Simulated scan of single mutants.
Amino acid sequence: MIVWINGTHGVGKTTTSKLVQQLLPGARVLDVEKVGEVLMDITPGLPATDNFQHWEPWRPLVVETARRVLEFTGGKLVMPMTVSRGHRHDAPHSGPGRAPYRGFSAWRLSTERPKMRCAVRT
């Protein structure tokens, strides 16, 4: 199972991920921003962009990393990340490296609304 927590920068995704992890026995937090940091460390650098999510390798690396971690450990992954642009909205569960899961929960945090919206895909 993957619990994906989406929201704008600074809304509390990482904090919420740690709280959700405590509620799910055996859950691990996978901060896929670290995948972007790996890409940013490549020298000489990749083509200039304002967001590492725009680099072609980012999306399949996120999917493959989640898939491999679940394959290796089993259990559940809690993934905080800001994904708000059309085709990237499906980043954690689509593409040729599709992550295996029994359930997929997407939570979007917003400072504009007092409630957290939750959509579950299976």
Rank of each mutant, 00 (worst) to 15 (best):
M1Q: 09
I2E: 00
W4G: 00
I5S: 03
N6P: 01
N6Q: 08
G7C: 07
H9M: 05
H9N: 04
G10K: 11
G10W: 10
G10C: 06
V11G: 06
T15W: 06
T15K: 06
T16S: 13
T16M: 14
S17M: 02
K18R: 15
L19A: 15
L19Q: 13
L19P: 04
V20W: 06
Q21P: 01
Q21G: 01
G26Y: 10
A27Q: 04
A27M: 06
R28M: 09
R28W: 10
R28E: 02
E33G: 11
E37L: 09
E37W: 14
E37M: 08
V38W: 12
L39F: 06
L39D: 02
I42L: 10
I42M: 04
T43M: 13
P44T: 05
G45H: 10
L46D: 05
A48L: 10
D50N: 14
Q53F: 09
H54S: 05
H54R: 15
W55N: 00
E56T: 13
E56Y: 06
E56S: 11
E56Q: 14
W58H: 13
W58F: 15
R59Q: 15
P60D: 12
V62E: 00
V63I: 04
V63P: 01
E64C: 03
E64F: 01
A66F: 04
A66K: 01
A66E: 07
R68K: 10
V69M: 11
L70Q: 02
L70P: 00
E71R: 11
E71S: 12
F72S: 12
T73Y: 15
T73N: 12
G74T: 13
G75P: 00
G75I: 07
G75F: 08
L77P: 01
L77M: 09
V78T: 02
M79R: 01
M81H: 09
V83C: 05
V83R: 00
V83L: 01
R85I: 13
H87W: 07
R88N: 15
H89G: 13
H89Y: 11
H89Q: 14
H89N: 15
D90I: 08
D90C: 05
D90N: 11
S94N: 09
S94R: 15
S94A: 13
G95T: 03
G97R: 07
G97H: 14
R98S: 13
P100K: 09
R102V: 14
W107M: 12
W107V: 08
W107A: 05
R108I: 07
R108C: 06
L109P: 00
S110L: 07
S110Y: 04
T111A: 14
T111P: 03
E112T: 12
R113Q: 12
P114H: 06
P114S: 10
K115E: 15
M116C: 11
R117G: 09
A119K: 13
V120R: 05
V120L: 13
V120P: 01
T122F: 10
T122P: 09
T122K: 14
